[in-house]
Amino acid sequence: QVKVQIAVANAQELLQRMTDKCFRKCIGKPGGSLDNSEQKCIAMCMDRYMDAWNTVSRAYNSRLQRERANM
């Protein structure tokens, strides 16, 4: 049950940071609605953010393992 709580908190933080980064990247001056290009940008940004998250996590884990092997 602790693990579930952690996973939920983690996913929430991931989503919140992703929303922030993609809003800053994709929306210039906010207008009356999300236009087509803003919507596309957000969809793409969200996919790339998840890719980046996976790349970063992989790099971090492989570094941890190399450091442990060197100890």
Binding site: I6, A9, N10, E13, L14, R17, K21, C22, K25, C41, M44, C45, D47, R48, Y49, D51, A52, W53, T55, V56, S57, Y60
Partner: peptide, 26 residues
């Protein structure tokens, strides 16, 4: 949580350094 905070910290920092315009793929 401490480990996960590190991952969140890395993505924050490295996204700004490495991703200029999100494209069709990484």
């Amino acid at each position: 949580e401490a480990e996960q905070q590190k991952a969140h910290h890395f993505i924050e920092l490295c996204w700004d350094k490495c991703v200029e315009k999100p494209g069709n793929r990484l």
